[in-house]
Design a protein around this nucleic acid. Structure first.
Length: 459
DNA sequence: GGCGCGTACCATGTCGAGCT
DNA sequence: AGCTCGACATGGTACGCGCC
C-alpha cells in the first residue's frame, strides 16, 4: 500500500532535482524528466544502458541533456520514486512556489477517503468526477482500488499533473484523467453521477498555485454543471473563508438544491498537525419541498483512519437559513435554547461564590455539644415550607461557644437558606429575628454581598 | 414492606495553630 | 522544621417515621 506520510520520498526526489537543476533544467522540466523515467520503468524491461537510452528516445522523443551514462545514472536514482510522492512534491514542495509554499496543504485531506467511500456507498453513483484531484492525492489510490466497479474521472488544470495522474492510474481501468480550466468563463464538466470538489481560493495550474479572485462566481459556474438528480460533495474549510462569501454560497445551495446532509469531519492527523475541521455539504440537484429536513453530522477520523460518526442532528431547511455556522456543535447548542443565547449575550455574569458567602450548617447536635453554655435557635429542614421559615417553633439547643464561630454561623435577615439533604430542595429567605439563630448541618445559607439581593437568587 | 423524607451521625482529608 | 491535634469541609450512610 502507498505510504501516505508527507515527504516520504522527498530526499530521493530532492537528489534527482539537484542533479538535473545543475544541468540547467527548470522545475517543470525536472518533473517531466522524472515522469519520463517512471514511464520508461513501466514500459521497458531494462537490459543495458544503450538500449535504455534508445528506448527513451523512441518512446518520448524529447531531448535529454546528457549521454547514455548520465541518463542511466538519473534513471537509477529516480526509478523507484513513488509517483504519488512525486505529485505531492510537485504541488507542495515545488520550488516554483518557494515564496508561497502550501505547507500542510498535502495533508489537508489525508484520511478523508473513508468518508468518501461511505458517501459513494450511500448514493451508489456509477461515475465519480473529482475536480482538482491534486487536492486529494493521498486518497485516490485507496479509493479507486477499493471501488473498482466505479468509474472515476479526474480533472486537473495542470498539464504535468495530467501526465502524472495518467501514469499513476495507467493500470486502473476504472480511472480516466483529463484537463480542464476551472477558471474558464464557460466551464463544462464531464457527466458524472457524483462530483467531489474542494473549493478554496487556490487552484494549481502551470506548476503554480494560483489565487482565484472571483470565487463566488466560480462556484456558481461549477454548481451550474450539476445535472438533474446528480450528487455533489462540496468540501470547504471554514477557517479559510472571509467575509460573507460562505453565506452567499450557502444561500445559493439552500435556494437551488436539495441539501442532503452537512458533515463536519474532524481529521486528527498524527505527526504534530493540529486537528482540522473539514466540512462537506452533500447536495443533490432535485426539486424539494420548502421544509424538508437536513442532517448535520459530526465525524471523527483518527490517525489510524478509524472513522466514527459521533453525533447527528436534524434541522429543517428553513431553520438552517438563519443559522450562522453549519456545525453540529454550534447547532446543537443553539437547539438547547435560551441557555446558549444567554451564555453568548452581553449580560454580565459572575460566579456565585465570588459574590456571596456559601456556608453549610455546623454539626451541633453531637455529644460534644451536649452540655453547652450558650442557647441558640436551630433551623432544620422541617422548619422550611412554601411560606418561608417558621421561626416560632424552632428547636433550642445549647452549644459550647468556644467551638462555634458566631459570626460565621448565625443567620442574618436576607440569607437564602436551602436544603442540602433529602430530595425536595426547599429554600427560603431568612426573616428578621432578634434571637441568635443558626442552621443545622442539613442546610446551607447563601449570603450575597451588598450589591446583590437574595430574592433574585431565590427565583 | 417499600418508599420518600428528614434527622443524626460517620469517615476521611486538609489546614493551620500551637508545641517541641 | 516537624509533629500533633482541633476545627472544619466534604461526601457520604444509617435509620426512624409516616404514608401508600
Amino acid at each position: 500500500m502507498l505510504k501516505l506520510i508527507y515527504g516520504f520520498d522527498e530526499n530521493r526526489i530532492a537528489r534527482v532535482y539537484s542533479v538535473l537543476q545543475n544541468c540547467g533544467l527548470n522545475n517543470n522540466r525536472i518533473i517531466d524528466e522524472i515522469l519520463r523515467i517512471l514511464y520508461l520503468r513501466d514500459k521497458f524491461e531494462f537490459t543495458n544502458k544503450e538500449s535504455l537510452y534508445k528506448a527513451m528516445k523512441e518512446y518520448t522523443g524529447e531531448n535529454f541533456p546528457g549521454d547514455e551514462s548520465f541518463f542511466y545514472e538519473i534513471y537509477s536514482l529516480a526509478k523507484d520514486i513513488n509517483i504519488f510522492d512525486l505529485i505531492n512534491y510537485y504541488v507542495v514542495y515545488n520550488p516554483n512556489e518557494s515564496k508561497n509554499r502550501r505547507i500542510g496543504y498535502q495533508s489537508l485531506f489525508t484520511n478523508i477517503s473513508v468518508y468518501f467511500k461511505k458517501v459513494i456507498e450511500k448514493y451508489n453513483p456509477q461515475s465519480i468526477l473529482i475536480l482538482e484531484p491534486e487536492k486529494f492525492v493521498d486518497e485516490l489510490p485507496l479509493l479507486t482500488e477499493q471501488l473498482k466497479d466505479k468509474r472515476f474521472i479526474l480533472l486537473t488544470g495542470d498539464k504535468l499533473l495530467k501526465k502524472a495522474f495518467c501514469l499513476a492510474f495507467e493500470k486502473r481501468e476504472n480511472v480516466e484523467v483529463s484537463t480542464f480550466d476551472i477558471t474558464s468563463e464557460t466551464i463544462t464538466l464531464p457527466e458524472a453521477d457524483l462530483t467531489i470538489s474542494m473549493n478554496v481560493f487556490y487552484t494549481f495550474r502551470e506548476g503554480k498555485w494560483k489565487l482565484i479572485r472571483n470565487i463566488n462566481e466560480l462556484w456558481n459556474r461549477i454548481i451550474k454543471n450539476i445535472k438533474k438528480d446528480d450528487y455533489y460533495c462540496f468540501l470547504y474549510l471554514d477557517e479559510l473563508f472571509v467575509n460573507d462569501k460562505l453565506d452567499i454560497l450557502r444561500g445559493n445551495l439552500l435556494e437551488n438544491f436539495h441539501i442532503k446532509s452537512i458533515n463536519n469531519i474532524y481529521l486528527k492527523r498524527g505527526y504534530g498537525f493540529i486537528p482540522r475541521l473539514v466540512n462537506v455539504i452533500e447536495i443533490k440537484n432535485e426539486k424539494k419541498d420548502d421544509d424538508y429536513d437536513i442532517e448535520i453530522v459530526s465525524w471523527t477520523v483518527d490517525k489510524d483512519k478509524n472513522y466514527s460518526r459521533n453525533n447527528s442532528i436534524i434541522k429543517n431547511r428553513n431553520e438552517l437559513k438563519n443559522i450562522e455556522k453549519w456545525e453540529y456543535e454550534y447547532i446543537s447548542k443553539i437547539s438547547e435554547g435560551n441557555l446558549f443565547k444567554y451564555q453568548n449575550s452581553k449580560i454580565k455574569k459572575v460566579k456565585l461564590k465570588d459574590i456571596a458567602d456559601i456556608v453549610r450548617g455546623r454539626m451541633l447536635l453531637g455529644s460534644k455539644n451536649s452540655e453547652g453554655d450558650r442557647e441558640i435557635d436551630l433551623i432544620n429542614i422541617s422548619s422550611i415550607d412554601d411560606e418561608g421559615i417558621d421561626l416560632s417553633n424552632l428547636r433550642r439547643i445549647n452549644i459550647k461557644q468556644k467551638w462555634f464561630q458566631l459570626d460565621k454561623y448565625l443567620v442574618r435577615e436576607g440569607d437564602l437558606i436551602l436544603t442540602c439533604r433529602g430530595t425536595l430542595l426547599k429554600m427560603a429567605i431568612a426573616p428578621k429575628t432578634d434571637r441568635d439563630t443558626t442552621i443545622a448541618s442539613n442546610l446551607i445559607y447563601i449570603r450575597p454581598n451588598k450589591d446583590y439581593d437574595s430574592r433574585y437568587l431565590k427565583l
